[in-house]
Amino acid sequence: MEGLNFNLIDISYLDLIISLGLIIVAAGISKWQGMYLEGDLIVGAVRTFIQLLAVGYILKYIFAFDRWYLIIFIILIMIIIASLTVTQRQKKRTIELPFIVGFAMTAGSGITVFVVTQILLQIKPWYEPHYLIPLAGMVIGNSMNGSTLAIDRIDSEIKSRKMEIEAYLALGATARQAAGASIRAAMRAAMIPTINSMMVVGIVALPGMMTGQILSGTSPLIAVKYQIIIMYMIALSVAISSYLLTNIRFNRYFTSDHRLKEESL
C-alpha cells in the first residue's frame, strides 16, 4: 500500500465514551430548544455504539477465520436483512415479496460484485473478505434503497394510472405493455438518487467509505479510484435489481389473461 507518513491513532474505549459527550451536548440543545429529541438521540447513540462494535467484532473474527463459506454466508445474511427491511417498509406486504426482493438484490449485487472482484480486480483468494465484504455491503445497502423506491413507485403508478392501463388493455395491449409507463417510472425513481449522487460526489459530500480509507492511511488517490468503481457498481446493481423487481412486481396487479385485478388495487 502507498503508505504516507501518517500514524493511525487508535481510538480507545475511553475515547469512545468521551465522544459520547458530543451526543450529550446535542441532547442538551434539544432539551433547551424543546425539540423533544433527547430520548431518540440517546437511544440512537447507544444503538450506534452497540451495533457497530458488534459488527466490528464479527468482521474481525471473519477476517481471521478466512473461510469462503463464512464470507458468502455473511453476504447472504446482509441480503436477507436488506430484503426484510425493504418488505417492512411496504404497506402492501405479500408472502412472496421478501423472496422477490431477495432475488432481485442477489442478482443485482451478485453480478456487479462478481464482475468487479473477479474480472476487474482479480482478488486472491477469490473470497478475500477485505474486498468482498465492504464492496458487497455498499452495493446491497444502495440496492435496498433503490428497491424500496421501485416498489413504492410501481404500486402508486399502477393505482393512479388504472384508467390509462385499461384503455391500453381494451386496445389489445398485453398486461406488460399496459403497465409499461408504470414500470418505467418506477425504474427511473429507483435510479435517480444514484445518478444524483454520481453528479455531486466529492463536491457536496465525501463518501463514507472513502473517508474511512483516507483516515486509515490509504493514499487519497487510491481511495478515490475505489470510490469511482463503487459508484459505478451501485449504478449497475440498482439498475439490475429495480429492473427485475418492477418487472416481477407488476404481475400481481394483473391476471394471466391480461385483466387488471380490481381487488389488488
Binding site: 384508467m163 390509462e164 385499461e166 384503455a167 386496445l171 389489445g172 395491449a173 385483466r259
Partner: peptide
Amino acid sequence: PVLDLRRRIGMVFQIPIIF
C-alpha cells in the same frame, strides 16, 4: 385468445382517456 378478442371488440370509456 383474449388479445384477439379485444382487437375485435373495441371499447370507448365514459371519460375519454388520451395518451
